[in-house]
Write a protein that binds this DNA or RNA. Sequence first.
DNA 1: TCAATAATGATACTCAATCTCAATTTCAAT
DNA 2: ATTGAAATTGAGATTGAGTATCATTATTGA
Lengths: 171, 171
Amino acid sequence: MIRLRKDAEVTLFPSHAQKPADFQHWLGSLRGRFEDYLTKQGLNLTKQRETILHCLTEADQHLTAEQIYDQVKKKDASIGRATVFRTIKLLQECGLVDEIASLRGSAKFELKADRPHHDHMICVECGRILEFQSPMMEKFQDEAIRKQGFTALWHRHEIFGRCKLCQKQRS
Amino acid sequence: MIRLRKDAEVTLFPSHAQKPADFQHWLGSLRGRFEDYLTKQGLNLTKQRETILHCLTEADQHLTAEQIYDQVKKKDASIGRATVFRTIKLLQECGLVDEIASLRGSAKFELKADRPHHDHMICVECGRILEFQSPMMEKFQDEAIRKQGFTALWHRHEIFGRCKLCQKQRS
DNA sequence: TCAATAATGATACTCAATCTCAATTTCAAT
DNA sequence: ATTGAAATTGAGATTGAGTATCATTATTGA
């Protein structure tokens, strides 16, 4: 028999993460982590890659690659689309960025950085993405993985439906 | 404090579902459910749609639309790709088929029919899809949905990693 | 029967994402 | 600073899954 504390069940997150108080320091530390990873791979932190990371830190919502590209062009119009895609992939590899499947079409991305793992509810009406966390859910997931003898690399848990606001507008 | 029975936690499924003993009866009942849905929508159960459903009942693994198309052509070479895509969509709408995101590229589909809800582990090496079920995980998920005031329509919970066999081959 | 509607298959198209490749930049070792 | 190897880039071509179009065929209900 497993016993659970009721208050440990589920936590809702605000719809987009709050920026750290010391933004510059935070940005610097992320840049450092990116550079460490690149160096380890024999790659360099170019100004394009820095610009793209910078745009992601400024975003306060989940963005598609195209939306990131639009933001990037405001800072440096010469950066190409391919570079944005390539850099997002690098950021995923080093664990700084997570991909979230959008309803249809292009994927959306979020800066993971040091945020705790969380899952998503995606509104099929307005596209809003809500975040939640449930350590107990993770616990049972891990149990399934262990039982199966599987080695998990990453996972996605996405609930599609209608958010509170869009339900109101319907009725 | 919530108390859980340890044996209610996690169930693993065999990698592909077993066929019901009375296959013909099962197929007939699925055909009936499909027809009911179509009729309700003012649509007809054509021989093409019947053939596609039939192929899905015979499959013993998760298939991409293209793979379903290949199977369908063995039964009736005149059926077009578009019809396969359209029919899969109809089968999803009436709850007979579920979509599973594959690692990359095309989606995979499985016949849901009366199988209990389950989630998937997807091996990034060999593409194998393993199934598991955790009522408790669902419970916490529902709690998050309730707290958020969300109305869930469907969800996907997919764990990507390496299966037991592919780990062995690596070491 | 026959008009209205549904369904089909071939093909053109869309769109995100990836690939190619020549040109440029960066780095490490002189 | 110079140089050669390797990394990086941007433009544009390409891929590939899925969708839209549309003329033709099938089905339905009056």
